[in-house]
Computed example of a mutant assay.
Amino acid sequence: MRSPRPLALIGGGPVAAEDIEEAIGLTAGFVAADGGVAHLTDRAIRPLAVIGDMDSADADAVAAEGNPVHRIDEQDSTDLEKCLRAIEAPLLLGLGFLGGRADHNLAAMNALVRHAGAPLVLLGGEDICFHCRDTLVLDLAAGTRVSIFPMAPLTGCLSEGLRWTIEGLAMRPDGQIGTSNMALGGAMRMGFDGPGALVILPRHLLAQVTEVLLQGAP
Rank of each mutant, 00 (worst) to 15 (best):
M182G: 09
G194D: 09
G117Q: 00
V199W: 03
A23D: 11
L91Q: 00
G186K: 12
D174S: 14
F149V: 15
F30S: 03
L7C: 13
D174H: 15
G168M: 02
L106G: 09
A64F: 02
T210Q: 12
H204W: 10
D134L: 00
E81F: 00
V62S: 05
G29P: 07
R114E: 09
G185R: 08
P4V: 12
V137W: 00
A57I: 04
G168H: 04
E81N: 10
G216M: 13
M188V: 06
G117N: 05
A102V: 14
R101D: 02
M182T: 13
V146W: 01
N110T: 10
L214G: 10
M109C: 15
R172D: 11
L214V: 03
A61Y: 07
V209E: 10
C132M: 12
L80D: 04
N105I: 00
G191C: 07
G143H: 10
I148R: 03
L84I: 04
G186M: 09
E160N: 00
L120A: 11
D134R: 14
C83A: 01
E88Q: 14
G186I: 03
V37L: 05
M109A: 15
V137E: 15
N67W: 09
A23S: 14
G66C: 09
Q208S: 13
G124Q: 09
R145W: 04
C157G: 06
D139Q: 13
P202A: 02
M151K: 08
R189A: 02
V113A: 08
P6Y: 12
L9P: 03
G96W: 05
E126I: 03
I10Y: 14
D134A: 13
A32Y: 06
L112Y: 06
P119T: 05
V37M: 04
A16W: 09
I166S: 07
L91N: 08
V62Q: 08
A152G: 03
E74R: 15
I20H: 12
D127K: 03
P218D: 15
I200A: 05
G100V: 08
M171Y: 01
D103A: 10
A152W: 02
